[in-house]
Amino acid sequence: MAKLHLIKLSVGTETIESLRQWQAGKQTQTADGLPRHVTRMWPKRADELLDGGSIFWVFQGMVQCRQRLLRFDEVIGQDGIRRCAFVLDPAIIPTTNALKRPFQGWRYLQPADAPADLPAHRQTEDELPASLSAALADIGVL
């Protein structure tokens, strides 16, 4: 089991499918073709995150999926500022929906607080509308 995870708002994408499409773009990939997310801050607890950790993505106020963290690459922007690229496993794993209030940047997420993966037989289901998913999660059904 992972020692630690990350949680992040998926800014610019509103569904798992739109995240998948965004990550398919060359500008969001490493030289070896893996998806990445570039951020200003470098995690101080990188070793714990790379010991099986994932980044959990929040869409429209709900955690809906995760991707395993593979490594952290240094990226120097055109402005000369050092940034961190979270290099991700291309497999996007749907999770049970969990409500999450808005927050800035990324946060550490303890494994005990992470939503469970959806069972394999449910991973091919169509996504529910965000408002319905939020309402069901709010009353504890999802």
Rank of each mutant, 00 (worst) to 15 (best):
P129S: 03
V141D: 08
I7E: 00
V11R: 15
A130E: 02
I93Q: 06
R82H: 14
V38A: 12
I81N: 11
G80P: 04
M1R: 03
A137C: 00
P115L: 01
Q27K: 09
T39D: 07
Q123V: 09
Q27C: 03
L69M: 00
D138F: 04
K26E: 15
L99R: 01
A91V: 12
A31L: 15
V58K: 02
R71K: 06
Y108E: 01
D32I: 13
I76N: 06
G12Y: 14
E125A: 15
R68K: 09
A98R: 06
L118P: 00
E48Q: 06
F59T: 05
E17G: 10
L6I: 02
A91N: 07
R83D: 09
Q64F: 08
A91F: 10
F72V: 04
V141A: 07
A116G: 06
T96P: 09
G77P: 13
T96V: 08
E74Q: 11
T30A: 06
R83W: 14
A134R: 01
L136R: 05
A137D: 01
R20T: 14
H121F: 13
Q27S: 15
I55Y: 12
R45M: 07
E17L: 12
V87N: 03
D89G: 13
H37V: 10
C65R: 10
A130I: 02
E127H: 05
S131H: 02
S54P: 07
K3F: 08
D51S: 10
T124K: 12
L69H: 00
Y108V: 03
V141N: 02
D51L: 05
I7F: 00
D47G: 08
A116S: 08
R82N: 13
T15H: 05
G52W: 01
M41F: 15
L109A: 02
E74D: 12
S18W: 06
L69V: 06
A31S: 13
S10G: 04
A31M: 14
A114M: 00
T96Q: 14
D79V: 10
I139E: 01
S131E: 04
I139G: 00
R107N: 13
Q78Y: 11
F103L: 05
T39H: 11
Q21N: 07
K3Q: 04
Q29P: 12
D138V: 02
V58D: 04
C84Y: 08
A130N: 02
R40P: 14
R122T: 02
T95N: 02
A98Y: 07
D79P: 05
Q110C: 07
D79M: 08
Q23P: 06
H37I: 11
A112F: 00
N97M: 09
R71Y: 07
L50C: 01
L128S: 07
P43V: 14
T96Y: 11
H37E: 09
P129G: 05
D126H: 10
E127M: 03
A120S: 11
D73G: 08
D89I: 13
I76P: 11
G61L: 07
L34Q: 08
S133R: 05
Q60I: 11
R40I: 15
G77H: 10
T39R: 12
W22V: 09
H121Y: 11
C65S: 11
L132Y: 01
S18Q: 11
A137Q: 00
I76L: 13
S133Q: 04
G140W: 00
G53Y: 05
R20S: 06
P119S: 04
L50W: 03
